[in-house]
Amino acid sequence: MDNQITLRVDGADTPLTVDTRTSLLDAMRERLGATSAKKGCDHGQCGACTVLLDGRRVNSCLVLAVTAEGQEVTTSDGLATGGTPHALHDAFVDHDAYQCGYCTPGQIASAAGVLAEAARGWPSAVTEDLVADATDLTDAEIRERMSGNLCRCAAYANIVPAVAEVAVEQGVRA
């Protein structure tokens, strides 16, 4: 069954008619030509489809497009401003934090979410002091918080320092 919706992806509003079964991921990729987020497992297990939905990282394969109306979707592409790469983009390049690159837009959108969550003082499963006021994104914290993003090339050893560099810049890593 078809529904009329308007999706706002990376700042652009597009009205479209979608089958209610369409995921946000498929609507972006197949209907809007917004191919930054990738389809890996399509089950919420790999993280390649990660986008920010009203600033929070989610798996866009598990979000029905009809439920995303009125929300701001930001992909890795949308993190760049006016052709200038986001600090995470630069850090991933500088640290060679990928091999094939397929998971990278999801990794970067997820990392942006991690930084925002750390700025809110949210703990993780490896945080010793649950009631600490501030978060220190140690390597162990980054690994735990990024565990929803798989990299089959296993570029993890370079992804962690890439995220760490931006975490220092943003004041969420000592």
Binding site: R56, V58, N59, G148
Partner: peptide, 12 residues
């Protein structure tokens, strides 16, 4: 809660 799922899933 923190032991469950991933950051993306916990947000949703």
């Amino acid at each position: 809660l923190l032991a469950g799922a991933s950051g993306q899933l916990r947000n949703r």
